[in-house]
């Protein structure tokens, strides 16, 4: 079975700038995939090539075994392109019906399918509105709705929650998590915590190059001799905490880059139940924790 996405030595340069430089990776269908990187890293360029908005300068790309733009991919691959807007002349439902018909739905089915995806995005009250009558967030949700028409196999989402209020951002995350079984999402975002919650595989682009491809939920990329626990505490004396935890058996180091958040490195082989000891230590010192993560956070994995 072919990979869902397969890129080999992908290069793109325009206006004298190398936007992508020898990017190679493979992703299988399944849990959502994150695409992270700073502004200008090449994320949108990669998205645009995958969607066939333009072609690569060199290298090969395959989606579901086909080149981008291939007729076989119509309706199977969908996207929320960055900054794409609906036609201002037609209502949202009319445009979604039109797009559904292009995917092979007849008029009646298209209408039902459009209503289904609008309901997922909590937009049933706005089906007959013109795009200009919707807020920025509603337009974005309508654009995500169009990407879900026909339950495509692969959906590319470029900054899906940027500009949305927390409630709607949460709904979109929930919908992505719910649909993840039938559709594979490739999500580009600057919101690392959001990606950490949603995605298994993380593609880290920087300066047009693939810096790393990691599994956000496993620790296989970590040094086998050292395990990590990330803990966020309520108000605490930072120096005191580091001092006391450092003295615990098997602890190698305690680092803190954010206020009240600590990454504890320890020998997991000799102390597999270190987390239990740590919790006891917290209780003995009357320290209250907010969050405890076995391993490093995605942010730590990517940027430390």
């Amino acid at each position: 079975m072919s990979a869902l996405i397969e890129c080999e030595n992908l290069c793109k340069h325009y206006d004298g700038k190398q936007a992508l430089n020898n990017v190679s990776f493979q992703c299988q269908a399944g849990e959502p995939i994150a695409l992270v990187g700073p502004n200008g890293a090449g994320k949108t360029t990669l998205f645009s090539i995958l969607c066939h908005y333009f072609s690569q300068s060199s290298g090969t790309v395959k989606l579901l075994g086909h080149s981008p733009g291939d007729r076989q991919l119509h309706g199977q691959v969908s996207a929320l392109p960055q900054d794409a807007q609906f036609d201002p002349a037609f209502s949202i439902i009319k445009q979604l019906n039109f797009l559904a018909q292009l995917q092979g739905f007849n008029k009646k089915q298209a209408n039902l399918e459009s209503l289904r995806v609008l309901e997922l995005m909590e937009l049933t009250q706005s089906v007959n509105s013109l795009p200009s009558e919707l807020s920025h967030g509603m337009r974005k949700r309508a654009a995500i709705a169009q990407a879900l028409i026909g339950r495509p196999k692969l959906v590319l989402l470029d900054e899906p929650t940027a500009g949305l209020d927390p409630g709607n951002a949460k709904n979109i995350r929930q919908q992505i998590a719910k649909l993840a079984g039938e559709t594979t999402f490739l999500i580009s975002s600057h919101n690392i915590q959001e990606l950490e919650r949603l995605c298994d595989t993380v593609l880290h682009l920087e300066h047009g190059q693939l810096k790393q491809q990691i599994n956000s939920r496993s620790s296989i990329h970590e040094d086998v001799s050292q395990s990590f626990i990330t803990i966020e505490l309520e108000s605490v004396d930072q120096a005191l905490f580091i001092d006391r935890v450092s003295k615990m058996f098997s602890v190698a180091n305690v680092l803190s880059e954010n206020k009240n958040e600590f990454v504890i490195g320890y020998d997991g082989q000799s102390t597999p139940d270190f987390d239990q000891h740590l919790l006891k230590n917290l209780a003995d010192n009357n320290w209250k924790y907010r969050r405890l993560i076995k391993g490093k956070t995605l942010e730590e994995k990517l940027f430390s």
Binding site: C51, H52, Y53, G69, R71, L73, H74, G75, V77, S78, A79, P81, D83, A84, Q85, F86, D87, P88, Q95, L99, L102, Q103, A143, Q146
Partner: peptide, 17 residues
């Protein structure tokens, strides 16, 4: 105009240029 506002990006995923 459809290219300018990005509407063609929605359409081109469903049919050929």
């Amino acid at each position: 105009p459809d290219r300018e506002r990005g509407t063609l990006r929605f359409i081109s995923l469903r049919c050929s240029r």
